[in-house]
Design a protein around this nucleic acid. Structure first.
Lengths: 128, 128
DNA sequence: ATTTATGCAAACTATTTGCATTGCC
DNA sequence: GGCAATGCAAATAGTTTGCATAAAT
């Protein structure tokens, strides 16, 4: 199962690297077809999944249906606005102690944890 | 918009109360139709959402497509097996300090956080 | 009697897949 | 040349919606 480099792959990789936020497959696809209008959505999905498998990209459930992709792959936390559903990275160190805390309480072998704060973002906060 | 009590609603409520785990809409529907085979899936969805709105039920994204419903509504954490995807409640007190920690770092108004541990459950751990 | 809730089928959204064809290595 | 990757369209999964009818208040 040798992997080949194609123009589609390099294009999607470039678009993903240039993302400064999270984006869903459709959004990435839209940026991609601005450069190469002949690439298909199925191909974009296939490449994104390959990147997730090789740890070039992270997949994050955004709670409301769609999956979003996060170009930041090292462990980090998220914060999501409960009004507009936008998801942001948050600058808080990964709390290893939480994993340790759980290891003593369960028969699971714990690998990691996902932490997402919920709140209302500045833009969605009514000003008066 | 007055709410009415129907046999469908009481049945779904009973089934949900008797759940001792998380279950997706389809699973709840399957239990429901064992008692009343004439109830439709759309109705089950409508009732489940109503229960989520009234805080009788919690909705949890299980990461892999389907949404699962959790009859435990007070704040609590989850642990999910990365092999079988099953989601369990976990017995760890809610860490209020995490919300506090974030409040100082962001322009969001923080309400709460979701914490899900990832690992391999006992059943999916190969024994030798 | 009024008006919400239901059942059904169709619509929809996000994603995946089969397959013939293209194009890397 | 051979086999992986692509494009397309169709299939799938989960969920939602429109509308005529049934049932709760």
């Amino acid at each position: 199962m040798e992997k080949r480099n194609t123009k589609q792959k390099s294009l999607v990789r470039k678009i993903v690297r240039d993302l400064n936020t999270h984006a869903c497959a459709e959004e990435i696809y839209n940026r991609v077809i601005k450069v190469n209008p002949r690439i298909s959505l199925a191909t974009v999905y296939r490449i994104l999944h390959e990147m997730v498998d090789t740890n070039e990209l992270r997949e994050v459930a955004n709670g409301s249906g769609a999956t979003v992709f996060d170009p930041t792959v090292h462990p980090h936390y998220h914060i999501q606005c409960i009004k507009c559903n936008q998801l942001f990275d948050i600058d808080l160190p990964y709390h290893e102690n939480l994993d340790k805390e759980i290891r003593e309480k369960t028969s699971f072998s714990i690998l990691s944890h996902d932490l997402t704060f919920k709140g209302v973002c500045a833009r969605c906060t009514p000003k008066n």
